[in-house]
Amino acid sequence: MTTQKLSALKPGETGIIAALNTEEDLYHRLSALGFRIGKKIDIIRGARFSGPLHVRIGTTDVMLRRVEANKIDIQPLP
């Protein structure tokens, strides 16, 4: 199973959350938003100049800073 950082995915790509490598406070905040291991995540769009990512988990849309996206490991789906 090969993983990559969430921030490396391009708009239109999909993956499965493999790990959340964050401090406890951020882990709980992301979990409350639906970021859980095994959940499917879609990249909707990425802002220019290393801006935030617009991601979708289920029916929830979230804008996520790339700093946090770098802490989330994803298993890309074809």
Rank of each mutant, 00 (worst) to 15 (best):
42 D>N: 15
29 R>K: 14
15 G>Y: 04
42 D>T: 13
28 H>D: 13
57 I>L: 10
77 L>R: 07
64 L>F: 05
13 E>I: 00
13 E>T: 02
45 R>S: 09
73 D>S: 11
75 Q>I: 13
73 D>H: 09
49 F>A: 10
70 N>C: 09
31 S>P: 13
58 G>A: 07
78 P>R: 12
12 G>E: 03
63 M>Y: 08
43 I>Y: 00
48 R>H: 05
76 P>K: 10
38 G>V: 11
37 I>K: 14
62 V>F: 06
54 H>K: 10
32 A>E: 05
18 A>M: 13
8 A>W: 13
62 V>Y: 00
75 Q>N: 14
34 G>C: 08
30 L>D: 02
46 G>F: 00
52 P>L: 01
52 P>I: 00
70 N>E: 07
51 G>L: 06
56 R>E: 09
22 T>P: 13
68 E>Y: 11
70 N>Q: 12
65 R>G: 04
52 P>A: 01
43 I>G: 02
19 A>C: 09
15 G>S: 10
12 G>A: 01
21 N>C: 15
30 L>W: 08
40 K>H: 03
19 A>S: 12
21 N>F: 09
66 R>Y: 05
65 R>T: 05
17 I>K: 01
1 M>K: 15
1 M>D: 12
2 T>P: 11
28 H>A: 12
20 L>T: 03
37 I>A: 00
